[in-house]
Structures are given as C-alpha cells and as structure tokens.
Amino acid sequence: MELLPQILINALITGSLYALIAVGFSLTYGVLKILNFSHCHLMMAGAYLFYLFFVELEFGIFSSALCTIAASVFLASIVFFLFIRPFEGRSILLPLVSTLGCATILESLVAIFFGVNVKSLSGDWISESIEIGSIFVTPLQLLIISTAIIISVVLAIILQFTPFGRQVRAVAERATAAESVGITPVRVRFTVFSAAVLLTILGGILVGFESNLTPTMGQSFILKAVAASVLGGLGNVWGTLAGSFILGFIENIAVGIDIGGFSLPASYKDSFAFFVILFVLLLRPNGIFSMRRRSV
C-alpha cells in the first residue's frame, strides 16, 4: 500500500486524458443529440496529423500545433457536413451507422498512409522522471493533468458565463425554441462539434507522447469515452469530467492493489470500462449523478 500515492497519481493522469477525450463526446451528444462513434477515430486522425507535421515534416512544435489545428478544423467540417448534418431529424440509426462508417474510413486511410505499425511522439525533456516525495512523475504527465484542469475551468466559464455558452445550453435543451429567439442552431452545433474534436485531438496528441499511436487506438478509446460519459451522464459535462476521473481511478486501483496476494493482471485494465458501462446501464442509465430514473 505504499504504492497508493503512485496509484493515485496514475489515476489522475489517466483520468485527465480520459477527460480531454470524453468531454467532447459527451458535449456532442448533449448538443447534437448523436452518439459520434467516429469521435475517437477523429482523435486518432488528428494525432497522426500532428505526427505528420512534427515528426515526418519536422516542423517546430508551434508550427505543428497550428497546422494540426487548421487541419483538424477542416476534418471536423467534413465530418460534420457530410456524415452528421445530412441525417438530422431522421432516425437516430442513421447517424449511428454513418459515424461508424466514418470511423472505419478514417482508420483505413490512416493505415494506408501511415502503415499499421506503432508510432510514437517523443521529446527528451518531457519524459524524464521527477521524484516528488514517494511518487514519480514526468513533466509530460504534469502537463496532462494541468491541461485537463485548465480546459475544465475554461469550459465551465464559457458554458456558464458567456453568451455563447448560453446559446449552447439553449440549443442543447431545445433547438426549436432557441431558433425562435434568433439563435442559429447549425452554427452553434458546428462550433461545439469542432471544439469537441479539437479537444479530443489534443488528448490524442498527449496520448501519443505518453504512450504511442496506432490506427486502432480509435477503437480502444471510444469505449473509454463512452464509459466516462455514460457514468457521468451523456451530455452532462461535469458528470463526464467526474466520470473520466472515476474511470481512471477504477482502472488504476483495480490492477494496482494487492488483496492477499491476488492481483489482477494488467491486461484486464482496459476491460473495466466495458463493465462499468454495462453496470451503469443496468442501474442508472442516465448516469450516476442523475436523479431521474430512465423508463422505457
């Protein structure tokens, strides 16, 4: 149990990554009312774009970041206008299927252009371990945690206190009513979607630095994003943030602790997300923070 502080820090790091990735997914559901199954594939594609600029083309870090942002917004626009917008107001099966198709397209394109081998983003100074007390962290990991905190705070301020935030909440709640007071739902949705994509790509880049990039990472992370969102309540930004950290905590504790000499092999770490999802769906489909019981 002396490892506990280390486990907690790891949980914080994992949770922060999940938060960056999941909050966009949840927001997309809340405002656009769709489950964007290509959310983490967009993350993967954006991270690979950064890899292209930073590693292959060897732009500096800031130029790479700018190019990635530009390319990501472009990518988000394509996805929004081709894969999401045409299906508004129709059966929800359509955007589900369309985003699944989009995800596979992105995965194949990345595999074709970058190959299926694992790629890594790295920088020397950021990966050096620092010892603080009994725990080891790297500057990168501290960066991850602080990014998540800053983004959460900024999101809070925007959603609660700015006019745009009010528009977002209006459209999320009832788009037709919002329209009648002069808000353009499409513009709001597009902005939220792009922001969601940018956030998740940021998360993806950090994942690239922290571990690695593969074309299939979209498939693995979407379950985490879904788990965190479902845990906290789909569409509920605070819930999702909390859910992300709870998920990170569960994963790290479950494989970290030793109960009487028995511990779970690390390969099961990822499976917790799945069980969390099913568990929550069984008991509290609206998320553990909701008071309402969903009835069918």
Partner: peptide
C-alpha cells in the same frame, strides 16, 4: 485497409443517398 475503405465508403454513400427512405422515423 483498402478493402475496409472500399466497403465503408460504399456504406456511407448508400446511407447518404437513401437517407430519406432508410429507417423511417
């Protein structure tokens, strides 16, 4: 990957073209 790409492009195209008739509300 190319096989996957071909199949998923066909999927999205067909869904898009039939969006009014597919899975009516």
């Amino acid at each position: 990957p190319m096989r996957q790409l071909l199949q998923s492009v066909i999927l999205v195209l067909v869904v898009w073209l039939n969006r009014n008739r597919l899975f009516s509300l």
